[in-house]
Design a protein around this nucleic acid. Structure first.
Length: 200
DNA sequence: CACTAGATTTTCT
DNA sequence: GAAAATCTAGTGG
């Protein structure tokens, strides 16, 4: 089931954990949808969070974070990488969930991505925020589009099985050492034991 | 293994 | 002009 916009209009820490086990679906024209289980997320919450882009006020780049929930926030960093985020919480409160890793679910041999064969798909990389956007061909053209509609070829569906709380590992976020007292907050979540998590 | 440098360009100061 | 919510290849132990 397609997750509705209201799913994202909730506390970011809750959304980030509830997204684990859900499916990020990528659809290319004339191809079967490629389903990927979300296995790792991070939360960026409010203007006080020094790790968040929003901590330095609203700018052209981070303006999407200040908008309504359920909107895709894609930004470019390190001169070469795109990051996929989903905006959370009520409008004007800047917060988002970073999708850090997914696990591709191959249902049949006809599942393809950008004309790659099934065997080639085995070598594709999904473990890391920059890798998954490259593999799924997600770039800035998705910025500010809704994730709760299918028409743009990228959406998120409900998980099928319940995920128990003991299956969720909570750790500090990656690559935010500059964020002072916020760098140690355990706002990174991943599914325990999953092979596709970016790092342990 | 662990660690570091380099890639490469948008964004903001 | 510096830094960046990263990744890879390369070095050394």
């Amino acid at each position: 089931m397609l997750l509705p916009q209201s799913f994202y209009n909730r506390p970011t820490l809750k959304v980030a954990q509830d997204l684990l086990g859900c499916f990020l679906v990528r659809k290319f024209p004339d191809e079967a949808p490629l389903r990927c289980k979300i296995v790792e997320t991070e939360a960026y919450i409010g203007q006080n969070d020094l790790a968040s882009h929003a901590s330095r006020g609203k700018t052209v780049r981070n303006g999407v974070m200040f908008g309504p929930p359920g909107i895709i926030y894609v930004y470019f960093t390190y001169g070469m990488h795109y990051m996929l985020n989903i905006v959370t919480e009520e409008e004007s409160y800047p917060a988002a969930v970073l999708i850090r890793a997914v696990e591709p679910i191959v249902l049949n041999r006809k599942s393809q991505i950008a004309n790659l064969s099934h065997t080639a798909m085995r070598d594709l990389k999904f473990n890391g925020p920059a890798r998954l956007t490259k593999t799924l061909q997600i770039d800035k053209s998705f910025n500010h589009l809704p994730i709760y509609a299918k028409q743009h070829g990228l959406w998120i569906e409900n998980r099928i099985k319940e995920l128990k709380s003991y299956q969720i590992v909570k750790t500090a976020r990656v690559g935010v050492d500059y964020a002072k007292e916020y760098k140690d907050k355990k706002w990174r979540f991943y599914i325990k034991g999953n092979e596709f998590v970016s790092k342990k």
